[in-house]
């Protein structure tokens, strides 16, 4: 039985489908989800989300959020809830690179936790889109 995966943001569902495995970066380390995984609710870090299917792979970048795994009647459902998320194919690499430079410049002038968080998000996008 494959995983039933949904990647959802408050604005819309950005991806859904069946997969063999989901790999995400939690706040306390990487997690890999296979069918029949124990129920789980963890906070995600800013970083990549990989969805493996038979032979192919989808990747997305999530800006934090939650990973929720439940199994009902033998079907394991994986919900990724993120405030902002983008599929790898939809990332505008040039815009992301520009944003990284811009944020680095700003951080050079003043150090700010919010700016650093933004930089991490932009860098995660660049890394994934490359």
């Amino acid at each position: 039985m494959p995983l039933d995966v949904h990647v959802v943001t408050p604005e819309r569902e950005i991806w859904s489908g069946q997969a063999a495995m989901v790999i995400a970066r939690g706040v306390e380390g990487e997690v890999g989800i296979l069918p029949q995984h124990a129920p789980l609710l963890i906070r995600l870090a800013v970083g990549p989300l990989r969805i493996r299917m038979d032979g192919t792979q989808e990747a997305a970048v999530v800006d934090g959020g939650f990973l929720h795994v439940t199994t009902t009647e033998g079907v394991t459902r994986v919900d990724v809830l993120a405030s902002y998320a983008e599929m790898a194919g939809q990332i505008d690499l040039r815009a992301a690179e520009y944003r990284v430079q811009e944020l680095q410049r700003e951080l050079g002038q003043r150090d700010d936790a919010g700016l650093r968080a933004e930089l991490a998000k932009a860098m995660a996008r660049v890394e994934l889109a490359r």
Partner: peptide
Amino acid sequence: QRVEAARPYAELLTRAMEDV
């Protein structure tokens, strides 16, 4: 359409809280 599109997230959020 945007109201509709926003529904799944709210629904899943509630489900996560129910689990907690």
